[in-house]
Design a protein around this nucleic acid. Sequence first.
RNA 1: GGCGACGUGGCCGAGUGGUUAGGCAAGGGUCUGCAAAACCCUCUACCCGGGUUCGAGUCCCGGCGUCGCCUCCA
Length: 467
Amino acid sequence: MDVFNTLGRRRQPFQPLQPGRVGIYVCGPTVQARPHVGHGRAAVAFDVVRRYLTWSGYEVVYVQNVTDIEDKIIAAAAAEGADPQVLAKRNAEVFAAAYLRLGVRAPDIEPAATDHIAEMVQLIATLIAAGHAYPAGGDVYYAVRSYDGYGKLSGRRLDDLIAGPRIEPGEHKRDPLDFALWKAAKAGEPSWDSPWGPGRPGWHIECSAMARLYLGHTFDIHAGGADLIFPHHENEIAQSEAATGTPLARYWLHNGMVNLGGEKMAKSTGHVVDLIEALDTYPPQAVRLFYLRTHYRKPLDFTTAALEDSTASLDRLWAFRRRAGDPGSSPAHPATIAAFRSAMDDDFDAAGGLGVLFEAVRIGNRLLDADEDASALVAAYDELADLLGLSEVRGGIDDLAEELGALGARFGVSADAPETVLAGLLAIRAGARDRQDWATADAVRAALADLGLVVEDGTDGPRWHRS
RNA sequence: GGCGACGUGGCCGAGUGGUUAGGCAAGGGUCUGCAAAACCCUCUACCCGGGUUCGAGUCCCGGCGUCGCCUCCA
């Protein structure tokens, strides 16, 4: 298996620190506002990495943090007169719910920054003692020039950064490149005690502290959005490696941005599509499929046409699965599994993997049309669709009990369980069709369609699904 | 200006030098009471110019173009 490592900017074979085990740290969102479509992409991209590694036999520990204290959160809370912690908690729940709808598995560990102030203070103290950081006026800054590896991830040279017009000395910085590890408390802002006075942590230090706590000084994969490469991940490396003397992570994975009209979606500019809205407009798994159609490192343009395309593609997958029936204990089609594995082993090429899945569907449909055994392909489909998080979640019809009961009464079906009513209605329709009573048959189908139940006639009888 | 990514058929997109990826859309056909689904056929591309090679979408060089980072950001 090869992965593209941002550190070094090249593909390289993936070899975990310990055989069979993989530690992953993903930079989660700052929960200042609701999630947008870009957040969903990052979550899905690394969820698939995690699922694939697990499927491949690795024992994975997946850590994704929540940044719940930060300038923007404080500002957003102030704007609506709320407590920053309350606002952060509320938004964090919205993020979690959206991720759940996208089929993203909950992290093994989901540390919040505010629960790890002590670890951060300790790490900052270590850096000061080692001469890599200095307190100044209640703040603590990291001395960028004290660590000679600075810039190795993003390919930046200190002199280039200096030349940049936007870097201005902070109030207490000795060097314009230095960044805050600890910020002195301002009136009315949340703060914690520290050896340097009350304050709050800088953004970058939380990841260094929490990754170290849960995954150790060196771990396998550190992931996040490409927009975090600089300065966030660069700073993390500087902090962690200056403190421990060992590499922070062996592989750095970064997902590409989601664009809107050719430009990056970003909450700071309001140039965004709300993720919840997208999930309400399209089937959540169609949104997931939309993400997976493009390699995770490439930019991805959000368009309604692309989402509709994905919805149609998802329908094709699910229609196949509905008609196929139970594959029993059939082993998964080996060639399909092998082709899929080959695609995913190439830097988690889920788009290539999807091609394999669709090909299995086409061949499977062909076999079913010919009344031949497709169980191996169906088994492969089940395994791969489940792995990718694209299996149809077939909801029950209990919520339609009342409407179905009324409809049943209209056609002379008296039963309590909605499933029984539906079966009765389908039986009535089958009888009508046998008599070539098309009016009745179509009336039943239309009435069910009004309830959101789509009935399709196959050679082996009718099938239904929720629309 | 510095660093980086990318340019594939109507659209989206995979592609590790050498047999049609795949999906969506469109047109035609088969099946079907109708509908839906499915299958078959058609649309065979690789930004431009050089080069390496028996052979390049796939490697090298040079252009052009798009995007990202360089400030908070998934």
